[in-house]
Simulated assay, not measured.
Amino acid sequence: MKVQIWSDVMCPFCYIGKRRFEQALQQLDSKADIEVEWKSFQLNPHLKTDPSLNVTQYLADIKGWTIDHARQMNHHVTEMAAEVGLTYDMDKAVVANSFDAHRFAHLAKQNGKGDEAEEALFNAYFTQGKNIADHDALAELGEAIGLDKTLVKQTLATDEYAADVNADVMQAQRYGISGVPFFVLDNKYGVSGAQAVPVFLQTLEKAHQEWALDNKPAKLDIIEGDSCGVDGDC
């Protein structure tokens, strides 16, 4: 059963949602049946990368908040992240356009490293303070998860996977997704936001039960005849 997850690297709730979903998935008896596919979403596609810009000031500017309120919000999400074992350092976060990071994620997905890429990108942005728009930084992340560093740099130097990112964004629009994280289970159930673990688990169980009924092996009407059995009797 496929679970599609739309997210953006710069979204603090997306990393928290990833952890809570993973915790729910670990409690699912049928977790081996679940295939997770990450999808691209850009909260601010027109954002210009500016490593010199303080992320607190950036939030205050785009949200119309005071600096103090922006700091309070960063502190709030940092505490939420800590509850699921994540360490956020918002003071180090680099304001960066995420489009090339999404292209990198698609390259990784093509090579069977989709989940590893998402984890690496979130960690790079929220914990390590790396510029996720920088091609050298992305190449290093790729090498760390088992991708060829040169391949990453060569790919990012072109427009490869740009169409894939845009296709994900368009699919999100068709679903009516206006915020992330957003989880689509078996193309039937949508879960918006970094929900509590029990919410994820309950929805996973419901979706899987229905999926299992729809995908159970066909029962054949058998016309018996002379044959040999697995025990050697003929």
Rank of each mutant, 00 (worst) to 15 (best):
W6S: 00
A212P: 12
S30Y: 03
T127K: 15
M170C: 05
D233Y: 03
H135F: 04
N187S: 13
D50M: 05
A137Y: 09
S52G: 08
G225W: 14
I177H: 01
W6M: 05
P217R: 03
F41K: 04
L43S: 06
D134I: 01
A120G: 01
E116D: 14
D231V: 04
S52A: 13
T203G: 04
A144C: 02
D134R: 08
W65L: 15
L86Y: 08
V180Q: 12
E83L: 03
V165W: 06
A70R: 11
A194M: 06
Q128G: 03
V55Q: 13
D148S: 05
V55N: 11
A81W: 01
G232K: 00
R103K: 05
P12V: 01
I62L: 04
D221G: 03
H75D: 15
Y189K: 01
N215Y: 11
C11K: 00
D8R: 05
F99M: 01
K2I: 06
V197K: 11
D214H: 09
P198C: 11
N187A: 04
L121D: 04
L59R: 12
P181H: 01
G232Y: 00
Y58F: 13
A120I: 03
A144W: 04
Q173K: 15
H106N: 12
E224T: 12
K206I: 09
W6E: 05
D231K: 03
E22D: 14
N111C: 03
Q154P: 01
K206V: 02
D8H: 12
L107A: 01
E22C: 01
Q26K: 13
Q23M: 15
F21N: 09
R174L: 06
G176I: 00
Y189G: 07
H75Q: 06
V9G: 12
R174W: 06
D186Q: 10
G229H: 12
V169P: 03
N97W: 04
Q202K: 15
V230M: 05
A93W: 00
L59H: 08
K18P: 07
L47C: 08
Q202I: 02
P217C: 00
Y175S: 03
I223R: 10
D89H: 15
A105K: 02
D61W: 03
G85R: 02
S7E: 04
G64T: 10
L59S: 08
L213W: 10
M73D: 05
Y58S: 12
E83R: 15
N131G: 02
Q154C: 03
L43F: 00
E224P: 11
L53V: 14
R174A: 05
A212L: 13
N131T: 04
Q4H: 13
Y15K: 07
D148M: 02
I62P: 05
R20N: 09
K113M: 11
T203V: 15
S98A: 07
N54R: 11
F200G: 09
Y88E: 08
Y15I: 11
E83C: 00
A162M: 08
A133K: 10
I34A: 12
H46D: 14
K206T: 07
A105I: 00
I223P: 02
D61H: 10
H135T: 14
K63E: 13
S227E: 11
L53T: 12
I223N: 12
L138P: 14
V3M: 08
S227G: 00
Q128Y: 10
V165T: 10
